[in-house]
Amino acid sequence: MPRRRRHRRIVAPPGFQGYKPYGTVGESAEHISLFYEEYEAIKLADYDLLKHEEACELMGVSRATFARIYESARRKIASALVETREIKTVFGNAVLDNDWLFCHNCSAKFTMPSNLTEQKCPVCKSDKIDFLNKLKI
């Protein structure tokens, strides 16, 4: 029986849609799909320098699941570097944190504290804003 896929919580999506090597010699193999939760695992562990206990708690997964996601992320990034493959980020099993909004006009991402009544972009004042987790990237 296939394992039931659980949704994982991630804090914010990556600020890019992909990475492409340049100055490569010869043909590159097909691109690698990096899941949002894999990006998040790398960010929490290697950028925010959290302990794995804290990171798995933030992502809402068990320690073992976190270790698996993190390992998979590292291997994907390593093969992208060594095999000069393009990286594309895809949704994966991630559910984005509900707190973030996105402005269609200026691309700012922001939170909306409950004491604010004006539902506008805090940078350009546009009202073309959406919850990030509703966007299909």
Binding site: V11, G15, D48, L50, A108, F110, M112, P113, L116, P122
Partner: peptide, 19 residues
């Protein structure tokens, strides 16, 4: 994540301008 937790608690709006 820690900053986000605290800023949320203080009702401070966070704005991300990436790249």
């Amino acid at each position: 994540p820690k900053a986000k937790e605290y800023l949320n608690k203080f009702n401070i709006q966070m704005v991300i301008l990436s790249n």
